[in-house]
Nucleic acid binder design. Structure first.
Length: 426
DNA sequence: TCTGGGGTCCTAGGACCC
DNA sequence: TCTGGGGTCCTAGGACCC
């Protein structure tokens, strides 16, 4: 019955998305948080980046600054946490490992989302979705939602309603064309993957309000007024798969490390220390994909919420290409000298590396003393090995006191990644 | 007092060349 | 003082995502 409506060899995508992921992670290790409002803050304890259902019900918005709802938090005994990415990363890994058992084709889309390809399986898809949900919940304690459909964009829609409509039990399947259209008619365009505020405004101004209307829009018109990306979305709504499936994540084209400061930073020395630390972090991430940097950009900025806002950036080509942290730190310091202005109160700074070349590509350090390069590579490999689990060895340039380091006054213990902080049974 | 971080892709416009 | 057009490459900025 169902199969007669499907294309002959359809792709069938399941999107599994962890509910309120960071807040749910905190809950796993502290059962007293169940049923209570929980919020996780961004770096520097700035604003809300994850909220339990109870916290959403209290009106706390995504991205809302903490100081705006601090009183509310006290009033309702909201449990507020600094972000603990070591914990979330580890929990994410556990979820992905479980998902791999349900299909050989897994694409990890973000820390809390993954697509599974369910092609050619002789299964009841909705039932399969419930099994996935049940097992992840049982094995990790994390609630997930599952959306199943013919394209990634439709699977996103399915996931969205699985989350929102409680009677569905966390799973929804849009493989039936009539059911799918009915759901699209109820879906505002801005809820679609790839449609943000600007595109919503434009579509709305032409009378396209819901996803079904966009699905039926004229191709030429869409390409002219929006973009090829939006045209791709339109095709996906029609059940024609246009977004590739990537089991192996492609190498990054840029790698950044940027932070807001925990305190006021004015001196060149402190700014330089922070940039050295960010350079070290970015270089470490870059070496994970076995690359050297061909360019660097640094930026500094004062608070955009205060008067006399100042922001500036400087970039440079790195020749020869390098993956050696001390060399990169020298570039960063030289760039900072170009844009540093005395008497400003800086709030944020960052380093972005780009134009990568693979370490084994030949042109890498072409004219350099190869023996020295070999030693440098070994040194960096040893350093990265030591710092893999947690930072143990740092460069003198990063400073020791780090007064500029971000605030994190409400962090939960690293339950799952530090032996000294794991839960103890009594 | 207090407002995150890390990515990708597209497009428009300028520089430059023939 | 008037006077072409087309192609490529690069960059900055915008839009979007989680």
């Amino acid at each position: 019955m169902l199969s007669s409506r499907l294309p002959r060899n359809p792709n069938i995508y399941a999107l599994i998305d962890c509910n309120n992921f960071y807040a749910s992670c905190e809950r796993v290790f502290d059962p007293s948080l169940r049923g209570r409002p929980v919020v996780v803050l961004s770096n520097n304890d700035g604003c809300a980046i994850a909220r339990s259902e109870e916290a959403k019900d209290l009106g706390i918005k995504m991205g809302q600054p903490f100081f705006e709802w601090e009183r509310l938090a006290a009033l309702h005994d909201i449990r507020v946490f600094s972000s603990n990415f070591a914990l979330y990363g580890d929990m994410s890994h556990r979820v992905m490992t479980i998902l791999r058992d349900f299909s050989p084709d897994l694409e990890i889309y973000s820390i809390d989302e993954a697509f599974l390809l369910l092609n050619g399986m002789n299964i009841d898809h909705e039932k399969y979705g419930r099994e996935i949900r049940q097992r992840v919940l049982q094995w990790t304690g994390l609630p997930v939602s599952v959306g199943i459909a013919l394209t990634k964009t439709l699977a996103k829609v399915a996931n969205h309603i699985a989350k929102r409509q409680k009677f569905r039990g966390g799973v929804s399947c849009l493989l039936d064309a009539a059911v799918c259209d009915a759901v699209l008619a109820e879906t505002p365009v801005q809820d679609l993957w790839g449609i943000g505020r600007q595109k919503m405004k434009l579509l709305n101004s032409y009378g396209i309000i819901n996803a079904l209307q966009l699905k039926d829009a004229d191709d030429v018109w869409v390409k002219k007024h929006l973009s090829v990306m939006t045209l791709r979305t339109v095709y996906e709504l029609r059940g024609i798969s246009c977004v590739g499936f990537e089991q192996i994540p492609p190498d990054k084209k840029t790698i950044a490390a940027t932070r807001s400061f925990g305190t006021e930073v004015s001196s060149f020395e402190e700014l330089n220390e922070s940039l050295a630390a960010y350079t070290a972090r970015a270089a470490e991430k870059m070496r994970e994909q076995d690359c050297g940097a061909g360019s660097m950009l640094i930026f500094v900025e004062t608070s955009p919420f205060k008067e006399n806002y100042y922001a500036n950036s400087a970039s440079i080509a790195i020749n020869p290409v390098s993956g050696y942290t001390p060399v990169l730190m020298k570039y960063a310091a030289a760039l900072l000298r170009q844009i540093y202005r005395d008497g400003k109160i800086y709030k944020r700074a960052g380093v972005i590396l780009g134009d990568f070349q693979k370490a084994d590509s030949g042109s890498y350090e072409l004219f350099a003393d190869t023996r020295r390069e070999a030693q440098r590579e070994k040194l960096m490999a040893a350093l990265d090995g030591l710092n893999r689990q947690e930072r143990q060895v740092v460069f003198g340039q990063e400073g020791l006191a780090k007064p500029w380091f971000m605030r994190q006054s409400r962090k939960s213990p690293s339950f799952s990644t530090r032996i000294s902080e794991c839960l103890k049974a009594r």
